[in-house]
Design a protein around this nucleic acid. Structure first.
Lengths: 183, 183
DNA sequence: ACCGCCTGTCAACACTCGTTGACAAAATTT
DNA sequence: AAATTTTGTCAACGAGTGTTGACAGGCGGT
């Protein structure tokens, strides 16, 4: 083959796709190795075990780009990062899908919660400032994660159907309301 | 003992507590029987197996009371039903916690998604009516489930701390915004 | 008393899980 | 060419899963 992808990379890619969509506990090591067409024992050899492989995929999560912007641009980036549909045929799984899939995991839930608090909730609260910054930031995150939940997990009708533009506009309206209310 | 609770009830109660908080796949039959102080085999005898026991707990889910109200009262009931904290020492587990815990389950996810669509999303859309009723209903649900997610799953700081009254007021503000926007 | 029925107990089943160690093949270095 | 390191293969392990069947005790009814 003219495809010199190392076995380690094949494992990491397959693990990312499966872990990020189904969740850590719902994916077996044999699921991953079967998908990557690789022997089961190599997971322990290259990554030290299932947990090490999962943590390796966590390092593929990019920083939340919305935090680099300000004001209206911040909101737009934040909304778009959540409202992008998750395409199973694509290699790129939405990182927020991964957070939703693993938040309730009995083994990895703590790690995921820490990622959200440290990487999203706290920096967002510091960024927006003002009265009740923590609560208002949490409200914005509630809107965003709620939207992702409706789309990816519950798959309710009113979310997948319409063109993406209208959905983004509606979420922007809601996001502004989340940050505006200060009690 | 002066406690004539039947074994079947003990099993159902323990199953409800464990299934609704940890999720179907993350609870073993032996976890339940150990918690209920009952033999493992009785699950299959009384409920036909693990799946039957889970479905028996699903019948304990009450209908969504918010759907019986109208206008502002509907919103208030809806918000309160979600924003009530989940107390692990209490016997009454919030049904929406159960939905969040089981929506990503590989075996029971379909059933849970159907419950939300048929019991919440569609009747709510019919109730509110107007333009884009489905999408606006989905937006309201996104706010509510997002709030529950922030509280129960992510446990972000800005949500648990403050008095419940302020949180309800803020969520009401957001819920009105969700239903008001019609494109 | 005898019978039948409900209830609970125990051991075992077939299966999947993550992980390990022995061994072979290939690639790299000396 | 020989030695060493890397890479992949195979079988097995102990633990945990849901489920089943055989068996015993208690209960009320004929």
């Amino acid at each position: 083959m003219s495809d010199p992808i190392s076995t380690r990379e094949k494992l990491l890619k397959a693990a990312q796709n499966l872990f990020w969509t189904r969740g850590y506990s719902n994916v077996s090591v044999r699921d991953i190795t079967r998908s990557a067409d690789v022997d089961v024992a190599l997971v322990s050899r290259y990554f030290g075990g299932k947990q090490g492989l999962f943590e390796a995929t966590l390092k593929l999560v990019p920083p939340w780009e919305a935090l680099a912007a300000d004001g209206e641009a911040l909101l737009l980036k934040a909304v778009k990062s959540f409202s992008e549909p998750h395409d199973p045929r694509s290699d790129a799984v939405n990182p927020f899908t991964m957070l939703l899939s693993n938040v309730n995991d009995p083994e990895m839930g703590d790690m995921i919660r820490d990622m959200v608090r440290r990487g999203m909730s706290k920096p967002l609260a510091e960024k927006i400032g003002g009265r009740q910054a923590e609560t208002r930031a949490a409200m914005l995150l509630a809107v965003l994660f709620g939207a992702a939940l409706m789309r990816k997990s519950f798959q309710v009708d009113g979310f997948q159907a319409q063109p993406n533009e209208a959905l983004v506009a509606q979420l922007m309206h809601l996001a502004r309301a989340a940050l505006a209310y200060d009690g």
